[in-house]
């Protein structure tokens, strides 16, 4: 996941939409959870398995199979977008969602980068 942090911080499109973003995302892949701390449009920290008392603004989580389907070179319908995945029940999106909607272009881009970078190819 350290790779994802580096990717997001140098990806031109992510940087384009990240301007002034500031939020704490709890990102869940199966049993693994990562606290993604975004400040000033950069991921400043990504902490694996943070303390259970860690606070966050919103959480996006799903089984590993959902994220693998999302990151497939050509994802199938309902797996191609996080809102589509949430609508179909493949993942959950919860918490204080103002930050999610305010930064939706950046959040989507960040979570699509493994597909765009061909991690599963």
């Amino acid at each position: 996941m350290k790779q994802l942090m580096d990717l997001a911080n140098r990806d031109p499109l992510a940087r384009r939409w990240a301007k002034n973003c500031a939020f704490d995302l709890m990102f869940g892949v199966g049993d693994d959870h990562y606290q993604v701390e975004v400040r000033g449009g950069q991921i400043e920290a990504m902490r694996e398995r943070p303390s259970k008392l860690t606070s966050w603004d919103f959480a996006i989580a799903g089984p590993q199979s959902s994220w693998q389907a999302h990151w497939a070179p050509v994802p199938a319908p309902t797996f191609h977008d996080i809102i589509a995945m949430r609508t179909a029940g493949h993942i959950t999106i919860e918490g204080e969602l103002t930050g999610f909607f305010a930064n939706i272009l950046y959040v989507k881009r960040m979570l699509e980068l493994p597909r765009i970078e061909g991690w599963l190819q």
């Binding site: 939409w17 809102i83 909607f101 305010a102 939706i104 989507k108």
Partner: peptide, 12 residues
Amino acid sequence: HVCAGMVSGLIA
């Protein structure tokens, strides 16, 4: 941002 962000996933 939010209007574009909400419809972006409707594009193949």
